[in-house]
Amino acid sequence: MIVSFNVNGEDRVANVAGSESLLQVLREELGLPGSKNACEQGECGSCSVELDGAIVTSCLVMAADCEGSAVTTIEGIGSDKELHAVQQALIDHGAVQCGFCTPGFVVTAAHLFEKNPHPETNEIKEALSGNICRCTGYGAILRSLEALAEEAR
């Protein structure tokens, strides 16, 4: 079936075969592999996207139900030339190792900072408690976002 929705500001049309997830369609149909497939259970946050203003795990969104929706993926946040402040902070503080979780962290943290430019440490941790990182122990991620929150003060 044909599903029309807006992705990163562009109207897109996807040919959806059945009950596959938004994540599948983004990666395999729409050429947007930045959202990562790591658990398909909503238990790691690697596929986080903004869907109609809320951050969700795209693996648990049925693509067929996205008709008329607006989606922002990692590809819609910053670019090589003009990084989002969250992206720059993560790089600057060495918060990227294997990087597989990073797109999910960027999408989720960018949304957090949009709503609250100077979150407290515990707010940062709780807002990102659905995003698993296996490499960093979260230390560098926390330092980067704390620094960003401090800058915003």
Partner: peptide
């Protein structure tokens, strides 16, 4: 979708 899609993704449900 947070329950149904887990079933779908793991092939336990094929709506």
């Amino acid at each position: 979708g947070t329950d149904l899609m887990v079933e779908v993704n793991f092939g336990h449900s094929r709506p």
